[in-house]
Nucleic acid binder design. Structure first.
Lengths: 219, 219
DNA sequence: ACCTGAACACCGTTCAAGT
DNA sequence: ACCTGAACACCGTTCAAGT
């Protein structure tokens, strides 16, 4: 008598996880996510996917969720923890640009709430007065997601290999110097800058603002 | 002999401007932008639009450009000017949520460069040391675009009339209090908050950070 | 319960043909 | 030079029919 494998163990059985994983692989591979292509890779018809996933929007959200993992927030100094947190998000989006676009678009996603929560706890640990906690955490989150969106768009629109600074510099060279004097001025500085370092400097700026406001409210 | 009107004066003549205007009207009306629907409204075939516009992406960019106007940056105190600038962008996106999504997605758009330039000039006027100018202007821009994207997504996904705070509060009530302690804590504060005020408070936070950093580098 | 795949109602874009 | 609209190559989603 043959013992039937439980469906969870059958290698060819479809599952939500298997679908999401395949979607992530497809998006990471640079292809557009399509139910037909996804179905073909999973060796089914497109209709089969709908048994496990409500629609494309939900699948995209689940894929982004899968890729921005809860890495344990490091203990210790809250300012250091916030920087680490921000860099983790930056690196995850750098590795999966499509997820960045997704986060910037669907702010009520569980992923975003999770990031917000982790930021907020460190803001509390920082000793920010209660009235300013929401504003402070929001500012950091918005900055992170803003950069995420930008970075994602840049990564997706530029041939891989070229650096963002090169593009910005090239673009700024063609600008009317009278109208875009500032942009042209700083474009030169871009050459030695690194997106990641730049991103972190912005986080530090916001942290400095939080510290300054805290100092004021205490006195 | 009949004098032929120049094509620019013919009422029914198609033009890039007329197409972009119709696209803006459609998007503001809450409909999805479609070449077929757009053509129908302009009483042509979809192919006609391609004579004036390269593709949908360009049309979307042009529509966003048309809606985020260069209102003259106010002279005077640079900190005040930056706040006004930020609020102008916020209000424009509040009025045209689809444009917010567009800006967050296509950072190399002329519109974004223009905003960046205007921010940068005020940062210079603020007396920020040269090395920090790019970082400071980027932080503000990223914050503004980040909020823009969030706000746009929220406005598009929520039934008009309901306030964002209500949604966030309702969502947070269903969260596991152990996992989302911070979010639940601040969700209560949301009731009396206003997105616009909240947005401005974040801008002030960054401005405070810039001021603090400047003070440090001087001493 | 889960899968299949044809069918429906759309898309953006192209292009021969017209004026 | 500019417009027309049929046609091409796709989409997401549904659903009767199968197992």
């Amino acid at each position: 008598m043959v013992i039937k494998a439980r469906s969870g163990e059958r290698e060819d059985a479809l599952s939500r996880k298997k679908i999401v994983d395949a979607a992530v692989a497809m998006l990471d591979g640079g292809s557009e996510l399509t139910f037909r292509a996804l179905a073909a890779q999973l060796r089914t018809g497109p209709g089969a996917i709908y048994w496990h996933v409500a629609n494309k929007s939900e699948l995209l959200a689940a894929a982004a969720d899968a890729v921005i993992e809860d890495t344990e927030s490091p203990a210790g100094e809250p300012e250091r923890a916030l920087r680490t947190l921000a860099l983790e998000v930056f690196d995850a989006i750098d590795a999966h640009p499509w997820a960045g676009a997704q986060l910037a678009r669907l702010p009520s996603q569980p992923t975003v709430l999770r990031i917000f929560e982790r930021i907020g706890r460190q803001v509390q640990a920082l000793g920010v007065p209660e009235t300013d906690q929401f504003t402070s955490a929001s500012a950091i989150l918005n900055y992170v997601l803003g950069v995420a969106g930008q970075h994602a768009a840049q990564r997706q629109s530029i041939e891989p290999g070229t650096r963002r600074s090169e593009v910005l510099e090239a673009a700024s060279t063609n600008l009317d110097p009278r109208v875009y004097s500032f942009t042209r001025d700083v474009a030169g500085q871009l050459r030695e800058h690194d997106d990641r370092v730049q991103f972190l400097a912005g986080v530090d700026l916001i942290l400095e603002g939080i510290a300054a406001k805290k100092a004021k409210s205490v006195s």
